[in-house]
């Protein structure tokens, strides 16, 4: 069974978002369900820090041995930083998708969009 964390919000594209202590600051990654479906992740294409993105926009990609999947911006805002460590070793995406496998940190524009993200329960239903 895939792990779903109670304290996170989710998208239907199998990404998670976590509110950080600073206001409007959010961390984003792919879910355990997503990494498990992809298999061994071999490459991650990350966006550039400083870029402004719209909710739903393709901001990068995750490659596994067999397939390539897009990464979508879960929320509108500005990319603050990206997980550069994944460039050399993307394996944390498989081993720790909610921890070392995080993808980006962003500053969100719109609290309303945050409220529209899926709760853990809603995502669990979606991922079944």
């Amino acid at each position: 069974m895939s792990e779903i964390r109670e304290n996170l919000r989710y998208t239907t594209d199998h990404e998670w978002a976590e509110k950080l202590s600073q206001p409007k600051k959010v961390k984003v990654g792919i879910t355990d369900f997503a990494q498990n479906s992809l298999g061994d992740v071999t490459f991650v294409e990350l966006p550039e820090a400083g870029k402004s993105v719209k909710k739903g926009e393709v901001i990068g990609s995750v490659e596994s041995v067999k397939a390539v999947s897009d990464i979508f911006a879960p929320l509108t805002g500005k990319i603050l930083s990206v997980n550069e460590a994944l460039n050399d070793d993307p394996s944390p995406l498989n081993t720790a998708p909610f921890e070392g496998g995080w993808l980006i940190e962003m500053e969100i524009e719109n609290e309303e969009e945050w409220n529209q993200l899926l709760s853990a329960q809603a995502y669990e239903q979606h991922a079944q």
């Binding site: 298999g39 061994d40 071999t42 596994s64 041995v65 067999k66």
Partner: peptide, 9 residues
């Protein structure tokens, strides 16, 4: 079967 433990493994 496409994989068991993982393709790389």
């Amino acid at each position: 079967p496409v994989q068991y433990t993982g393709i790389v493994d």
